[in-house]
Computed example of a mutant assay.
Amino acid sequence: MTTAKDLFIIAMDPKHSVGQGDLSLALAGAELIDLIGAEAVAVDGDRVVPGGAPALDDRLLDEAAKNLARETPHERIEDWLWRRGRDLSAAYQAALEEDGELTRARSGRLSFGSERVEPVDTPARRRAADRWSEQEPVLVALASVVGIDGEQSEDEPGLDDEAVTTVVAIVHDAVMELEAVRQRRSIENAAFANLWRGP
């Protein structure tokens, strides 16, 4: 399992309410962090610099690596997040269902997007839960960006890699930008509704 898949599983917990747009951006960031770890990419300032082509044992991560912009000047991290993140949470849901990691919910208590699904008790789900209970810094940081609070204490280690820290910060900014867009649309829609109703 990848950081993105672990994050998706954590986000499905019924205690959390995560928007699919926010999650898609965070999943793209998680992919980028895993690609950094696999030395498939490097970060130069705020740009994604493709590296070698290591064998990746995850089809979504492999797809992400193949979709890297290889021309110079290299793609900005923010642009990668928006481009790769488009409908990415739906892609992860479909992949996890196909792999038998998710099943259609029998109870009505867990809703994720328009589909009701729940994680199956598999080694992958347990691994995600273990990473979460151990408060693995990258997973906690990405979850925090989408509003899922971990229980990390102040004396626990944070992110110790500059490239990873940069990616998480840019994911945070992108999620904030998406929220600003939502609020602006909500205000515009309310104003239009008031205008339509008239005095």
Score class of each variant (00 low, 15 high):
107 S>Y: 15
139 L>F: 13
9 I>D: 04
73 P>E: 06
56 L>F: 10
135 Q>Y: 14
160 D>E: 14
153 S>Q: 11
167 V>H: 07
58 D>Y: 07
37 G>Y: 03
14 P>R: 13
163 A>K: 04
72 T>W: 13
88 L>H: 10
100 G>Q: 08
21 G>T: 14
145 V>L: 05
190 A>E: 15
134 E>A: 13
168 V>P: 03
52 G>R: 02
98 E>F: 14
68 L>R: 07
92 Y>K: 00
93 Q>L: 13
88 L>K: 02
56 L>P: 01
100 G>K: 08
106 R>T: 09
87 D>H: 12
178 L>I: 04
117 V>R: 05
179 E>Q: 11
65 A>R: 09
70 R>S: 01
114 S>W: 12
50 P>K: 02
130 D>R: 08
124 A>R: 09
58 D>R: 00
28 A>Q: 07
56 L>N: 05
114 S>M: 05
165 T>G: 07
63 E>Y: 13
49 V>P: 01
103 T>N: 01
171 V>W: 09
69 A>E: 10
114 S>C: 00
138 V>Q: 12
183 Q>K: 09
89 S>C: 08
177 E>S: 10
67 N>S: 10
17 S>V: 13
102 L>W: 14
146 V>Y: 12
122 T>K: 01
128 A>L: 05
44 D>W: 14
97 E>K: 08
102 L>S: 04
114 S>I: 05
138 V>T: 11
131 R>I: 00
52 G>C: 01
139 L>D: 07
24 S>F: 08
133 S>Y: 15
60 L>F: 11
1 M>K: 00
73 P>R: 12
136 E>I: 01
15 K>L: 10
88 L>E: 10
128 A>W: 12
193 A>N: 07
17 S>I: 11
131 R>H: 13
27 L>G: 11
151 E>Y: 15
111 S>E: 12
187 I>F: 15
180 A>Y: 14
121 D>M: 06
138 V>N: 06
183 Q>N: 08
